[in-house]
Structure formats: C-alpha cells, structure tokens
C-alpha cells in the first residue's frame, strides 16, 4: 500500500516540479479562449441537414429508410421482415408499437426485452432494435447514451444486425451541437451537471481496413446497421418554412 501511495506522490511531484505550479490552478480562466474559431453551429436547412445525415450514413454502408410518425410501426415491420431475421432483442424502454405490428406480420417473430438478459441469451439474438439520443449529420453518426430506450451497451454489440430509430428532430448538423445538446440536457436535471456516463458514437457498421487497406464491413460489432429516420414535427415544420422561402438559422431556431 505504501508503495502505491509513494508512486502517486512521486508522479505528482515530478509533474509539479516540471510545470512549475504547485497549487491546483483551475477553473475560471482555464476554459476561456481555448477552443475557438471552428464551426459550432451548422448552416444547412432542416431538410438539407437530414439529407446529409442520410447521405453520410449510406456512405459508410448503413441502410437508411425514411417514414412518417404514423408509418413507423409498419416501416419497422417491413425492415425487420426484409432482414430475413426472426429473433430480436430490444431495450425495455422502447414503445411497444415498434414491434407489435412486426410480431403480428412476421411468422416466427420473437422480440425479447432486455430485463437483465444473460450474455449468452443476447448472443442468440439475430438483431437488435433501439432508439438513440441524437444523430449527427456531418459525420453520419448515431449517438447512444444507453438510456432505457437505447439499451445496455452489450445489446447493440453482440447481435449482428442493428436497427436504430432516429427521429428527425434528434438530428443535429455538427459534433459541437451534439455536445451542446448533452450539456443542455444535463443542466435541465436537478443536479447541476450530469453529463452522460456512457456514450457510444456509432458511424456505420463495424469495419476494418487492416488487411491491405481494404475496407471490410463487420469485424466484431454488428455487420449491418439500419436506420429509420422518422419525419416528426421538426421536419414537417422545416418543409413548410422551406416552401415559404425561409432558410438557415430561423429554421433551426424553430426546430429547437
């Protein structure tokens, strides 16, 4: 134990001797002016933002379909049926409407909700259905905070096929907008700062280019990533405004 404490003291002493600051000096001025000059806010119209999201997802081999909020259950059912898979797993927090229609339409369909499933049970599943916290258009990324609707990390990892439902209003254009959104959400809670404890940014299916730089889909994570983009309120609003000739910033203000 004493050896451990010694190493800690030794390392900290060496660092302080080298940086020339003995007292913890942090806070106020630490953040100011460090990160600046780069693009934080996107400038695309709502529609263009969604188009870019779809385009960038497809560029990295994800399958994307769009649907209206009312059409979501049947779209999910169609995508699940087309996958040729039958055994699915899903986080406990997803709306029942997401899988009821599929259960009705697809013969042999099975969707197990993850109330603390064993790893071996999850391993048996052929696919997984989740929601997400956010989509990032600029890089074609979906972000999971692993809430009740997004599931434990393991369920989006072991099954070979992942279907993620993204509402259009969840899509931001830039990565900094995602961080802003996380911080805002945190500030909304009772505790002053509660940033996400778990985050997984997913950009396309698992991939490698380790053999002769040939991009191969699917090494250990899911080999297939499917995204359903639900045109919810924001997008409808966006479309109307576009028709009226309004663009850019106002669009986004409207959206958030």
């Amino acid at each position: 134990m004493s050896v451990v404490a010694d190493s800690r003291r030794l390392v900290l002493e060496r660092i302080r001797a080298a940086t020339g600051k003995s007292a913890p000096e942090r806070g106020a001025n630490a953040d100011a002016g460090l990160a600046q000059g780069y693009i934080r806010r996107g400038e695309l119209t709502v529609r263009a933002r969604h188009e870019r999201f779809i385009e960038r997802l497809r560029e990295y081999d994800a399958e994307v379909v769009e649907c209206s909020p009312e059409g979501l259950p049947s779209t999910i059912a169609a995508v699940l049926a087309a996958s040729g898979r039958r055994r699915f797993v899903a986080p406990p927090g997803i709306p029942a409407a997401w899988y009821v229609e599929a259960a009705w339409k697809i013969e042999g369909f099975e969707c197990v909700l993850d109330h603390g499933l064993e790893t071996s049970e999850i391993e048996q599943a052929e696919g997984v259905i989740t929601g997400c916290f956010c989509g990032i258009a600029g890089s074609g990324t979906i972000v999971l905070h692993h809430s009740a609707c997004e599931g434990r990390r393991v369920i989006t990892l072991l099954p070979d096929w992942h279907l993620c439902v993204v509402r259009a209003s969840q899509v931001v254009e830039t990565l900094p907008e995602y961080f802003e959104k996380s911080r805002e959400q945190a500030a909304g809670k009772e505790q002053k700062v509660e940033l996400p404890r778990l985050v997984t940014w997913i950009s396309g299916p698992s991939a490698t280019a380790d053999i002769e730089m040939t991009r191969i889909k699917g090494v250990h994570g899911p080999r297939f990533l499917n995204v359903i983009l639900v045109r919810d309120r924001e997008q409808a609003a966006g479309n109307r405004e576009q028709k009226a000739g309004t663009e850019g910033l106002e669009d986004r203000a409207q959206g958030q």
Partner: peptide, 10 residues
C-alpha cells in the same frame, strides 16, 4: 474517416 465506426466513453 469523419468519425471512426465506434467511439466509446464510460
């Protein structure tokens, strides 16, 4: 790549 396929934070 714009983002690597998986970025994890815990």
């Amino acid at each position: 790549e714009r983002m690597s396929p998986y970025t994890s934070l815990w």
